[in-house]
Simulated scan of single mutants.
Amino acid sequence: MGIYTIRREGVQEPEDVGVVIEGTTVMNNLGSVIMAFIVLFGLIYALDLSYPNDLKYTFDF
């Protein structure tokens, strides 16, 4: 599960930003990494996916 970006060398804006779950691209052309992050968490909630064990303390302060 993750977010990918495709950029051309020398260009600051990404050409494509998307979300990958279990090796399959489920959303693409999201426009920004922030939007992809929001969509990823929405998909985790909507699809009732279990959060990866190695990331379970990511948002623990």
Score class of each variant (00 low, 15 high):
39 V>Y: 02
54 D>G: 02
54 D>A: 12
60 D>F: 09
48 D>T: 12
58 T>Y: 11
27 M>A: 13
27 M>E: 12
6 I>C: 11
52 P>K: 13
28 N>Y: 14
26 V>A: 03
17 V>A: 07
49 L>V: 04
10 G>S: 11
30 L>C: 07
58 T>H: 06
43 L>Q: 02
31 G>C: 12
61 F>L: 03
48 D>H: 03
25 T>I: 15
43 L>N: 01
57 Y>A: 06
12 Q>C: 02
9 E>H: 06
56 K>W: 09
20 V>K: 05
26 V>W: 05
54 D>L: 09
29 N>A: 14
30 L>Y: 08
25 T>W: 01
51 Y>C: 01
16 D>Q: 08
41 F>V: 01
35 M>G: 00
19 V>L: 05
32 S>V: 07
29 N>L: 13
38 I>P: 00
19 V>F: 04
47 L>G: 03
55 L>S: 11
13 E>W: 09
29 N>G: 10
37 F>V: 00
3 I>A: 06
54 D>T: 13
33 V>G: 05
7 R>H: 13
2 G>T: 06
33 V>R: 15
46 A>I: 10
34 I>P: 00
40 L>C: 06
24 T>Q: 15
16 D>Y: 08
17 V>Y: 05
36 A>H: 11
5 T>K: 15
51 Y>W: 15
60 D>C: 05
61 F>Q: 07
13 E>D: 13
37 F>G: 11
16 D>C: 02
29 N>K: 15
59 F>W: 12
11 V>E: 04
7 R>P: 06
53 N>H: 09
54 D>P: 00
29 N>S: 14
4 Y>Q: 05
53 N>D: 09
24 T>L: 04
35 M>A: 14
18 G>F: 09
59 F>D: 00
29 N>C: 13
40 L>V: 02
1 M>L: 10
1 M>Q: 13
26 V>G: 01
55 L>D: 01
12 Q>K: 15
2 G>Y: 04
34 I>G: 09
45 Y>H: 07
27 M>G: 00
38 I>L: 11
56 K>T: 00
52 P>I: 08
30 L>K: 10
39 V>R: 14
38 I>E: 15
45 Y>T: 02
32 S>I: 10
47 L>R: 04
5 T>Q: 14
28 N>A: 12
30 L>I: 12
15 E>W: 12
48 D>F: 05
50 S>R: 03
43 L>P: 01
25 T>E: 13
9 E>T: 10
20 V>P: 02
57 Y>E: 08
59 F>H: 03
11 V>F: 03
43 L>R: 02
39 V>S: 07
25 T>S: 03
56 K>S: 03
36 A>G: 11
37 F>L: 07
55 L>P: 01
23 G>I: 04
46 A>C: 07
35 M>I: 13
30 L>N: 03
34 I>L: 11
31 G>P: 04
9 E>S: 07
25 T>H: 04
52 P>S: 10
1 M>H: 12
32 S>F: 13
10 G>E: 09
6 I>S: 05
25 T>Q: 08
35 M>Q: 10
41 F>D: 01
35 M>P: 00
16 D>N: 15
10 G>Q: 10
19 V>W: 03
6 I>K: 15
56 K>E: 02
27 M>F: 14
31 G>M: 13
